[in-house]
Nucleic acid binder design. Sequence first.
DNA 1: TGGGGTTAT
DNA 2: ATAACCC
Length: 463
Amino acid sequence: MERAEAGAPGGWPGALEPDEPDDLPWFHDELEPAGSSSCRVIVHVDLDCFYAQVEMISNPELKDKPLGVQQKYLVVTCNYEARKLGVKKLMSVRDAKEKCPQLVLVNGEDLTRYREMSYKVTELLEEFSPVVERLGFDENFVDLTEMVEKRLEQLQSDELSALTVSGHVYNNQSVNPRDTLHIRLLVGSHIAAEMREAMYQQLGLTGCAGVASNKLLAKLVSGVFKPNQQTVLLPESSQDLIHSLNHIKEIPGIGYKTAKRLEALGISSVRDLQTFSSKILEKELGISVAQRIQKLSFGEDDSPVTPSGPPQSFSEEDSFRCSSEVEAKTKIEELLASLLNRVCQDGRKPHTVRLVIRRYSSEKLCNRESRQCPIPSHIVQKLGAGNYDVMAPMVDILMKLFRNMVNVKMPFHLTLLSVCFCNLKSRNTAKKGTIDYYLTPSLSTTSHTGKRSFKMKDCHMED
DNA sequence: TGGGGTTAT
DNA sequence: ATAACCC
């Protein structure tokens, strides 16, 4: 609904001159309804060095020491003590120890406690407003638009005029108390402060927050004041914020590949991307990517905060060297055992299983191959209680997938194995009144007999 | 580069 | 099934 039809006989002059090259981004002169009703208030919440915080909560003796969390030979994250001493994220253990010999390392290859804490944070935020989108384990977006509206209705006019910001204002921009957008964002900043306070009081976690009118800007502004602080962006400063980025790769949504292709076109700064021909960009990257990233370069992002809900998939992976089928099977059993525990806790049942490998060979970054297949229904039904019954047949399936990818009669060298359960169903997924409902034994009124007898006359069409 | 996740094609 | 993106 945001998008004007490209070929629509709109009232704008350019439509009457089809021969005129139109290289200006089409969205640039889009009329905002200007009514504040279309403006959202979004908060991005970003925990400080999350894994390190979880480790310091688990073992308070680590609190005032420089701490790094290690996976294989990498320090994937570290606390601020360690950062002061020169340790960076994703630094090799060798470099980190060299920079900082006193660095304390804990192993963070098992994500269980991080994952659990991560969901506690999301659930806490969902208590404020149910529209929470997770991004990784340590970031969440919350759409505060409705909450802000409700709070504004409650506020008296004298309270309204005395309203101040909680935390920083980007660029130190002055607030206009008569600007309804300013006021709404200020209310958002108070909600953000309450969220951070609740995270600290209830979970012992600190983090940053950014409040702005869309996800892109909220995310960018949350990182401006860094540990344990928050910042609100007022609309007049959005161009300053986006131009504070030194390279297009810093725009969330423009990844490694796209950045390389843009660089090949001579685009490296945000302004380069803003002013580049839309037509050529669409031809190079496809219309979808081109339009999306060019809008991002102006700080425009109409993507909604999509509630994440429960995870779509569970996976366990381990990077290690593997050159025999026996090694592979042992690792697969290990990964599977952990996964079965997780799936058991979740309550839903996966209907698809996938095996992922990474081959050694020519270090093509991110070369992974996968094979997947449906989990036979008689196995699906056993999931949940006795995982011992499902272990053997699942290993069998996974080894078939393995041999489908890897010719075990030839020498091979893998550097990673991963098992993934997906296509999760609550098995209440069959809705009442549908054929599936009556064909699902656990839902049918006669199912408790254990017999697969589906008599339509026994079923009621209530609801 | 680890050990995860998501969506689009 | 892969390829891109995110952390």
